[in-house]
Amino acid sequence: MKTLLEMEAGQRGEVSEIIGGQGFRKKLEALGIFEGRVLEKISQLKLKGPVVLRIDRAQVAIGCESAKRIKLSILE
């Protein structure tokens, strides 16, 4: 299991745990991110920049602090 931040660009993973309160979860859910969802990390910007991922053919950007709180099991 890795956090979204630790994942390599190009890897796909299934969300297994989200660490955070109701507000945080709701924001993520609105973007379609919750336990059981499969997503692909496509980019990690330098200097603690956001993570960009692909979910349902759409690109979503998430700040790196939030990315630390999303854990995924990597799919090969």
Binding site: V52, A58, I62
Partner: peptide, 9 residues
């Protein structure tokens, strides 16, 4: 607040 957005095509 952290950035959390969908990027339009």
């Amino acid at each position: 607040p952290e950035l959390m957005i969908e990027i339009p095509p």
